[in-house]
Simulated scan of single mutants.
Amino acid sequence: MQKMERIKIIGVDISVVDFNSAQKYLFDNFEEARGHYICAANVHTTVTAHENSNYREVQNNSFMTLPDGKPLSVVGKKRGKSSMGRVTGPDFLEEVLKRTENTEVRHYFYGTTQENLDSFISAVKKSYPNLKIVGVEPSVFRSLTVKEEDELLERISESQADFVWIALGAPRQEIFCNKLSSRSNAVWVAVGGAFNVISGVIPRAPQWMQDHGLEWFYRFMKEPRRLFKRYFVTNSKFLWYLFRDKGEK
Rank of each mutant, 00 (worst) to 15 (best):
I9W: 04
I10F: 01
V12D: 00
I14V: 15
V16I: 11
D18M: 02
D18A: 02
F19A: 13
L26G: 02
F27A: 04
D28T: 09
F30Q: 12
G35F: 12
H36L: 12
Y37R: 05
Y37N: 08
A41N: 15
H44G: 10
T45L: 14
A49H: 14
N52H: 14
V58G: 11
L66G: 01
P67A: 10
L72N: 09
K77S: 07
R79C: 04
G80F: 09
S82G: 10
D91G: 02
E94V: 08
E95L: 01
E95C: 01
R99K: 08
T100K: 03
F109I: 01
T113K: 03
S119N: 12
S122E: 08
A123V: 02
P129F: 02
F141N: 06
R142M: 03
R142D: 02
T145S: 15
E149G: 05
L152T: 06
I156T: 13
W165Y: 09
W165D: 03
A167V: 03
A167D: 03
G169F: 03
G169P: 07
P171A: 04
F176Y: 14
N178V: 06
L180P: 07
S182I: 13
R183S: 11
S184A: 13
N185E: 12
A186S: 13
A186L: 03
W188E: 02
W188A: 05
V189T: 15
G193W: 04
A194D: 05
S199E: 09
V201R: 14
R204K: 13
Q207K: 14
Q207Y: 10
W208H: 11
W208C: 09
D211A: 15
G213S: 11
E215N: 11
Y218M: 04
K222C: 05
E223K: 13
R226P: 01
K229E: 06
K229Q: 08
F243G: 05
K246M: 09
G247H: 08
